[in-house]
Design a protein around this nucleic acid. Structure first.
Lengths: 175, 175
DNA sequence: CCGCTCATGTAACTGGTTACATGATTTA
DNA sequence: TAAATCATGTAACCAGTTACATGAGCGG
């Protein structure tokens, strides 16, 4: 029985939290998310819920109103158990380790830029990160529930730490 | 002309930095990395360098010693230009935005655990993160060059911020 | 009636994963 | 000489991406 992907775990978790969901609603959730990682493309979500339903982790039930078709998915007991196993404990190395960060990756190679370009890079990064942080803080204010708020705070904390680190680097690099 | 993936960018960057590289050496680099993200599987690296060579971004040259075959890859001018474009500026939203973090993701659903399990989760997370941080700090001490050191400091800073955040959550959750 | 949103899906592709296969060279 | 490491690769698979297709319901 293979591990769930992050997306699968999230979907099960969301269904656990919100009750009956349509694939469409799940999609909107990912599309509206403040973090840029989740694409929520139809080609990801629809096959995914079908897969989970086939494995008996979700159960689909027809909830069409009038002539408009609509499928609501609910969590089965097996689905809940599987979700809990994904959630942990125990936590895998992959889960606790430093997440990969494309900005940090680029820093390894900053020496390839001419000083002028490098300064430009740092200015650009700082400005865009500040924008992003503001959006995250705004989104965080609409948190529902304790753990939602704590998780959202996590992304704000991360961005602030990243910004502080960047400023340190800017100082170091301008010397 | 599509965008380079992170892995492709990293490979070009590494070749830029170290000069002629074998695919094998690139692989060892990823395998030995302290961050858990990079798998460095042969099935990723070998097709990747072949692809880049076919696109004229890398040039392969035979550097077999004796009967043992070995291919060294070097960066072409086009490859360097492409690498610079990947590096930025400008930086994309994806590059500056909060990286996705599987630990944070799980926090949204911590309410699904019974208090006892939740406490266990937090203890487990803290212990494993501390281990990981220690490994990162050790790896960081062997940094070569300014930007290598700054980037490595970045992952340490991230982990410390994540740990501080986790402890805040632990307090909040135990109330 | 036109366009937008709700709602569900498929098709082609792609980058990366695990697992396997091969052979030369070094070291215990 | 046996085992580990150097070194290169292929095959099967898989999750997620973009782009496309379909149709109902609703507001201006």
């Amino acid at each position: 029985m293979r591990e769930l992907t992050e997306l699968e775990g999230c979907v099960l978790g969301h269904v656990w939290e919100k009750g009956p969901c349509t694939a469409y609603a799940l999609r909107q959730m990912f599309l509206g998310s403040a973090s840029p990682h989740w694409s929520g493309s139809a080609g990801a979500i629809y096959p995914l819920v079908q897969r989970l339903a086939r494995q008996g982790l979700l159960r689909a039930r027809d909830q069409a109103t009038g002539r408009r078709r609509s499928k609501g998915y609910v969590l089965t007991p097996a689905g809940f158990a599987r979700f809990l196993r994904w959630l942990g404990p125990p936590l895998s190395e992959e889960t606790v380790g430093v997440p990969m960060d494309p900005l940090r990756t680029r820093f390894y190679f900053l020496g390839a830029l001419k000083p002028e370009q490098r300064a430009q890079f740092l200015v650009d990064a700082e400005a865009k990160m500040q924008d992003h942080l503001a959006r995250l803080e705004k989104a965080g204010r609409q948190s529902e529930g304790l753990y939602d708020a704590l998780a959202n705070r996590g992304s704000v904390v991360m961005m602030k730490a990243r910004l502080a680190w960047l400023r340190g680097v800017s100082e170091e690099a301008s010397k």
